[in-house]
């Protein structure tokens, strides 16, 4: 599927789509005239995407998709989607895990440090504990595996890696990430894939944990 | 895929799995000895499912899946999963929509009314507005459709219907749901499907909106 992607720059949800397209060769063009907060509030946009959220995708044969995981799936290829039903189910598991478990904990920890929302010590402590639990789950899973599902990269790896970006960028300083060597190896493999670099550029791992500062 | 499902009773996430299995004929057995809060804290369970969450699935050939949408996918059939890539992408879109948009708003509205969470007027009002927006999106989408994707029931319908259960059960009283006739029609069709009734039994639509009571 080729088409137009509406998003603001540096949107990790849009990265999933653009990286999937790098692997599949799908022609996905980011609309250069899209202005977040303006375009997605126009009647024309809302007629296509009533929730007014991004990323949103308009396929060249008119299909309209408003969810980042669904868009990534549409522009992917069979390898990324999973060849067998068993692999497809496990890929869906990790996509859901990234959305439902990883993302809330990651944002609850990082957003206050970026000044995007008020800091709450209870929530912050809990988020850190949850992130440790999730990193440990991924680390154990990757002890015996190169990729999350099957022998090759899939939407599971792309989705989890893009959701981990802000953690590795802002708070997973070397001492904090030391216990998760298998995960660090996998993440470094991911960000060094040419198809990933083509979308997110050179990624700098966190050297000093960002903390909330009044 | 056949196997054992670990869950507590009346878990809408497990309903998705059991309804999918009703359509596909997959043999999914709920472990009668599972005791929530006890079994899912044992080392044996945590060795298979480190997050200790339910529903969790152990396939008859040993596959382990810990996410309800992935389990439903594994026990489904081709019709439910979507026949074309385009349909599969749209089915994933609605599954994500149920998880990422519907569920948070639904829980934020209903949990305090059930006494599960403290009541917060701001959050409650915002959740109600979000629910209205989502019901309206579904209602418009279903103006010209019998099911959410394609001509037949799919995982999209099962996932969205199960996520809507607590709203239709507790707070969508007749006057509140009156503006969403297409959605009400679709929801009623869903809960009257034999495969759905076999799992959730007779479903009673809300007659009086549950409100928070000190």
């Amino acid at each position: 599927a080729s088409g137009t992607l509406y998003t603001y720059p540096e949107n990790f949800r849009a990265f999933k789509v653009l990286i999937a397209a790098q692997y599949s060769g799908a022609q996905v063009k980011v609309d250069p005239n899209f202005q977040f907060g303006v375009t997605n509030k126009t009647d024309a946009f809302l007629a296509k995407f009533p929730l007014g959220k991004v990323p949103a995708f308009e396929g060249s044969n008119g299909e309209l998709i408003f969810d980042s995981n669904a868009i990534a799936y549409a522009v992917a290829n069979e390898q990324l989607r999973g060849k067998s039903t068993a692999d497809q189910a496990l890929i869906l598991q990790w996509i859901s895990f990234a959305e439902v478990e990883l993302l809330p904990a990651s944002c609850t920890w990082v957003f206050p440090c970026l000044g995007l929302m008020p800091f709450n010590k209870g929530s912050n402590d809990r988020a850190k504990e949850d992130v440790k639990k999730f990193l440990s789950l991924l680390n154990s899973h990757l002890l015996t595996r190169t990729y999350l599902v099957g022998e090759r990269i899939s939407l599971a790896d792309i989705s989890v890696a893009c959701t981990l970006l802000q953690l590795y960028q802002h708070v997973l300083e070397p001492s904090f990430r030391a216990p998760y060597q298998n995960l660090n190896r996998w993440f470094t493999t991911m960000i060094n894939q040419p198809q990933v670099k083509a979308v997110i550029g050179n990624f700098e791992l966190c050297s000093k944990m960002l903390t909330f500062d009044n | 895929a056949s196997g054992t499902l670990y869950t507590y009773p009346e878990n809408f996430r497990a309903f998705k799995v059991l309804i999918a299995a009703q359509y596909s004929g997959a043999q999914v057995k709920v472990d009668p000895n599972f005791q929530f809060g006890v079994t899912n804290k044992t080392d044996a369970f945590l060795a298979k499912f480190p997050l200790g969450k339910v529903p969790a699935f152990e396939g008859s050939n040993g596959e382990l899946i810990f996410d309800s949408n992935a389990i439903a996918y594994a026990v489904a059939n081709e019709q439910l999963r979507g026949k074309s890539t385009a349909d599969q992408a749209l089915i994933l879109q609605w599954i994500s929509f149920a998880e990422v948009e519907l569920l948070p708003a639904s829980c934020t509205w209903v949990f305090p009314c059930l006494g599960l969470m403290p009541f917060n007027k701001g959050s409650n009002d915002r959740a109600k507005e979000d629910v209205k927006k989502f019901l309206s999106l579904l209602n418009s989408h279903l103006l010209t459709r019998t099911y959410l994707v394609g001509e037949r029931i799919s995982l999209a319908d099962i996932s969205v219907a199960c996520t809507l259960l607590q709203l239709y059960q507790h707070v969508l009283e007749p006057s509140f749901r009156a503006p969403y006739q297409n959605l009400n029609r679709w929801f009623t069709t869903m809960i009257n499907q034999p495969q759905v009734k076999a799992v959730i039994g007779n479903f009673e639509l809300c007659s009086k909106m549950l409100t928070f009571d000190n």
Binding site: C107 | Y8, F36
Partner: peptide, 30 residues
């Protein structure tokens, strides 16, 4: 960037709801 990120759909309070749901069903099942 800040405006955009802050608009992201994220269930920040999810862990509170998870805990509440867990507690309720654990009590119900015991």
């Amino acid at each position: 960037m800040a405006l955009e990120l802050a608009s992201e759909t994220v269930w920040f309070e999810k862990w509170r709801y998870d805990d509440a749901e867990c507690k309720y069903h654990e009590q119900k099942n015991q």
